[in-house]
């Protein structure tokens, strides 16, 4: 489907949707591939696309994009697991470029800071990511992958891993929805009444319902790398 042979698959994938962007890279969609039946794959946290080092780098990036504070962030939501599963399925087209960009990020960090991205302190990671986003990261070989496109991709991937249904591999234990105050898919939960709309009657969110019904837990995501 690549129509002009540009070197960066990421740029190509993103640009297909870029014309929809009102501003700032919204509406970014990684792929035009048809949906794949990946639910089974996504029920475990074993890496399917990324190697262990790549997994750690992605995980560290997601931790800066949605940090953990008094409420859960990307680590608790297991956003890296979502990204890994997406790159193994719907977004498989993007995997080679993703890989190249991750390796380049680590290489640049080692050259500039003496250690890989994962091992840097959070402040340094933020500096690196800000420079990456703005396309001013010294030493980045842009023929590998467009740094701004790569950042926008990981950013959107992290958000997706935080806000999408847990069946896609992220939003573990609904922590993303708990942070946002989104109660879950209302149709699946039997619908809402007029008193819910007015606020008179609290709507019981999906995570509270499932605590009360342990037989209906969400996908078994397992521990894998998420606790590392």
């Amino acid at each position: 489907m690549s129509d002009d042979g540009r070197p960066s698959v990421l740029a190509d994938l993103l640009s297909r949707r870029a014309f929809l962007a009102g501003s700032a890279g919204l509406w970014i969609s990684l792929s035009l591939a048809r949906p794949l039946a990946v639910a089974a794959v996504q029920r475990d946290s074993q890496p399917r696309a990324l190697d262990p080092r790549e997994w750690q780098v992605v995980r560290s990036i997601t931790a800066r994009i949605l940090p953990t504070d008094d409420l859960p962030g990307a680590i608790e939501a297991d956003c890296v697991n979502f990204i890994d599963k997406a790159l193994a399925a719907e977004d498989a087209e993007a995997l080679p470029a993703y890989r190249a960009a991750l390796a380049e990020l680590d290489r640049v960090c080692r050259a500039a800071k003496g250690s890989g991205f994962v091992e840097l302190p959070a402040e340094s990671q933020d500096e690196i990511l800000a420079a990456l986003e703005e396309g001013r990261l010294a030493g980045w070989k842009s023929e590998v992958a467009d740094p701004t496109v790569f950042f926008a991709t990981v950013r959107m991937h992290t958000i997706l891993g935080f806000v999408l249904d847990p069946r896609h591999g992220g939003n573990r234990d609904y922590v993303g929805w708990q942070v946002m105050g989104y109660p879950g898919p209302v149709h699946h939960l039997g619908g809402a009444q007029a008193d819910h709309l007015s606020g008179k009657l609290p709507f019981q969110p999906i995570w509270e319902r499932q605590q009360k019904r342990p037989d209906r837990k969400g996908p078994d995501i397992g521990s894998g790398h998420s606790g590392a």
């Binding site: 700032a24 800066r64 994009i65 940090p67 504070d69 409420l71 990511l129 986003e133 992290t158 942070v179």
Partner: peptide, 10 residues
Amino acid sequence: KTGAWGGPLK
């Protein structure tokens, strides 16, 4: 347009 991540995004 940039920096919509980290603490502000959260």
